[in-house]
Design a protein around this nucleic acid. Structure first.
Lengths: 220, 220
DNA sequence: TATCGATACCTACACCGTAGACTCAAACTA
DNA sequence: TAGTTTGAGTCTACGGTGTAGGTATCGATA
C-alpha cells in the first residue's frame, strides 16, 4: 500500500497514480464521514482511514482538528451557491432565499450543523456575501447600522432554527419517544405539536422577521 | 483524604462531615468548571477532581457524559427563574422577557451555550413553561398551531443569537483580529461593524419578530 | 449483631489528538 | 547529469479521554 489508492485529489494535475491531498478534498471526505457516522464517531484517525492515508497526513494541510472544522464550515457555506441568489431582486427576496438555502443546506447535513453553528465563518466568499447583502439592504432604505443588524438577525434565526431541528431529528431516533395520547403527560404542548410538523414554523418566523424589518422603513 | 472535603451536598440532610453527591450539585460544579476553563478543557476526571471525589463517582448519578450535559442544560434553564416572569401581562410582554432572560442567562455562561443549544431540554419546568407560554399565546388570539410555531421561533432566534455571540466573543480572544481601517480588507461590512456593538441587534430582531407575529392577529 | 443496599473507589481498556523524527520521490540548482 | 532541497506522507510514542467491571466502606434495617 504505497502509491495506488487513486482518487485523493479533486482537481489536481496528474490524475493517474496518486495526486496529493488538498484542503477541499479532505474537508469533503470529513464531511461525508460526519454525515454518515455522526460527529461523535468522527476522529482524525478515521479520517485518515477514509482518505486511505496515514492519520497524520491531514496535519500537513490543517494545523489541528479545529482548523479542519473551520474548513468544513466553509465547505458548507460554499454549498449554498450564493452566486445564484436573485441579486437583481429586492432585499427581501434575497434575504428570504438566502435564509432558505442556508437552512436547507444545513439540514442536509444534520450531524454537521453544530460544527457550522459554533464558529464564525470567515472565508472570502462568506465575507463577500455579507457585504453584498448589507449593500442591498442599504439600497433598500436601511441605514448601514440597521442593515448589519438585520443581516445578523437573519443569520442567527436561521442557524438557531437549523440547529434546533437537527438536534430534535437526530435525538428522536434514540431518545425518549413522545407519550401516548391517553397519558397525563399528553398536555397542550404535545397536542399542538401533533398538529404541527416540526419544521413548518420556519416560514412563519422568517416572514414575521422580514415583515418586522419592513416596518422600520415603511411604518404602518 | 477520605471523609472530609466538606461541601459535597447542596441541600442535603447531614451537613457535617460528608453528605452524598447529588445531581444538582454535580451539575453546578461541572458548569462552574466549564465557565472557568472552557468546554474543551472539561473532562469527567477534572470534574471528579473539582468535586474532591473519584471520577467514577459521578457515574452513580449520571449514566454518561451526555446525561450530565443534559443536566447542565436543565440547570441553565432553571437559572432563568421563569416563575418570576410577568405572567399576568400580555403575551408580548412575557415573550419579550422570556427571550431576554434566556439570552442573558446563556451569555453569562458563554462556554456552555453550545451545551444548551445542542440538546432539547425536557425537564418538567421547561415543559411546563412551554405549555404556559402557548396557553398565553392562545389567549392572545393565536391558534394552537400558530402559538407553538411562534414559541419555537422565539426560542430558536434567541438561542441562535446567544450562540453566535458567545462564539464571536470567545473566538476573538484568540483568533484573528479585525483589519486596520487603512487595509483593503476594511470593507463596508467592517465599517458598519465598527459603528455597531456586536450585541445591539438582539432587540431589533426580537422586536421585528414580535411585530411580525402581531400582524398575524391584527393585520395592518 | 448480621445483613443489605447504596455510595464511592480502583483498575484497566480502547481510543483520542498530535508532537517529533523518519522516508522518499519530485523539483530545482549547478 | 549529479547533488541538493523541499514537502507530502509515515511511523512511533505520549499524555489524555470516557467508561466497563470489580471492590471496599458505611449507614440503615432486621
Amino acid at each position: 500500500m504505497k502509491t495506488e489508492k487513486g482518487g485523493a485529489g479533486g482537481t489536481r494535475p496528474s490524475p493517474g497514480v496518486r495526486s496529493t491531498l488538498n484542503r477541499p478534498y479532505i474537508c469533503a471526505v470529513a464531511l461525508a464521514l460526519i454525515d454518515a457516522n455522526g460527529l461523535g464517531n468522527f476522529s482524525m484517525r478515521k479520517l485518515g482511514a477514509g482518505l486511505g492515508v496515514d492519520p497524520m497526513a491531514v496535519y500537513r494541510h490543517f494545523t489541528d482538528q479545529e482548523e479542519l472544522f473551520d474548513g468544513i464550515a466553509e465547505a458548507l457555506f460554499d454549498e449554498l451557491d450564493v452566486g445564484s441568489l436573485p441579486w437583481d431582486g429586492s432585499w427581501r427576496a434575497v434575504a428570504e432565499q438566502y435564509c432558505r438555502r442556508l437552512r436547507d443546506t444545513l439540514l442536509r447535513h444534520p450531524h454537521a450543523v453544530s460544527v457550522f453553528a459554533t464558529r464564525p465563518v470567515r472565508s472570502p466568499s462568506s465575507i463577500d456575501t455579507g457585504v453584498r447583502i448589507i449593500e442591498l439592504l442599504q439600497a433598500g432604505g436601511f441605514t448601514p447600522t440597521r442593515a448589519l443588524q438585520i443581516a445578523r438577525c437573519l443569520r442567527e434565526f436561521t442557524i438557531g432554527h437549523a440547529l434546533s431541528l437537527a438536534v430534535v431529528r437526530l435525538g428522536s431516533q434514540s431518545r425518549s419517544r413522545k407519550p401516548a395520547p391517553e397519558s397525563p403527560d399528553y398536555n397542550i404542548l404535545a397536542r399542538a405539536a401533533d398538529d404541527t410538523e416540526i419544521d413548518e414554523h420556519f416560514d412563519v418566523g422568517l416572514t414575521a422577521l422580514l415583515d418586522g424589518f419592513e416596518l422600520l422603513i415603511r411604518p404602518a
